[in-house]
Each structure stands twice: as C-alpha cells, then as structure tokens.
C-alpha cells in the first residue's frame, strides 16, 4: 500500500511517500511495524496524540482496519485557513 507523510512527519521520516508491503490488520499495527523497522520511524511515531491519519484520503482513527485500503497518510493536526 502507499504510505504518505506530510509536514514534520515527512521531514522526520525523510520521504514524502513509500510503497510498503504489510499484513498489518489496523493502522496501529502498521505503526508498530514501522516503529520496529528503524529509528526514524520510532521518532516520528513516538507521540501518537500529535498525529492524525487519513485512510484512502478520509480522516480516520488508529484502530481503523486496513483491509482493502490502498493509501494511508500520517500527518500532524492540520493548520489551514
């Protein structure tokens, strides 16, 4: 699945987008998988209260299922307007 990162999450992880093969059942399972992978992920995902997630371009929750999902994005709270 495509995993996208925005704002400081993108800066900490070092790429805006990557293709990840995962069998994670939920968003949080994917986060755990990434955290275990490398330090930069552990750092980016150290405080989940500072993060938001979109699943297939809709705002979602960390316990959301990844079944059939094509795109997931992690970012800080939005600051538009």
């Amino acid at each position: 699945m495509n995993v996208l990162y925005f704002a400081w999450v993108r800066e900490r992880i070092g790429v805006p987008k990557e293709q990840i093969d995962t069998s994670a059942a939920t968003v949080m399972d994917l986060v755990e998988e990434l955290r275990a992978r490398e330090e930069r992920y552990a750092l980016a995902f150290s405080d989940m209260s500072a993060l938001r997630v979109a699943v297939d371009q809709d705002l979602s929750d960390f316990d959301a299922s990844l079944e059939g999902v094509r795109e997931i994005a992690f970012f800080p709270p939005m600051t538009g307007g």
């Binding site: 925005f6 704002a7 705002l59 800080p76 709270p77 600051t79 538009g80 307007g81």
Partner: peptide
C-alpha cells in the same frame, strides 16, 4: 472546519529558523 479538517500545514520561516505552525 477549513482550519482543522482540511489537510493544509503551515511552516513559518523567520530568518534562519523554520518552524511548523502548531494547531
């Protein structure tokens, strides 16, 4: 809703420093 539900992020540059604007 546009302020906190549309996916925009602001970063301010002041001189040499750069900082993401906190929500």
């Amino acid at each position: 809703f546009l302020k906190s539900r549309a996916p925009f992020w602001k970063k301010e540059q002041t001189g040499a420093a750069q900082d993401w604007v906190n929500s």
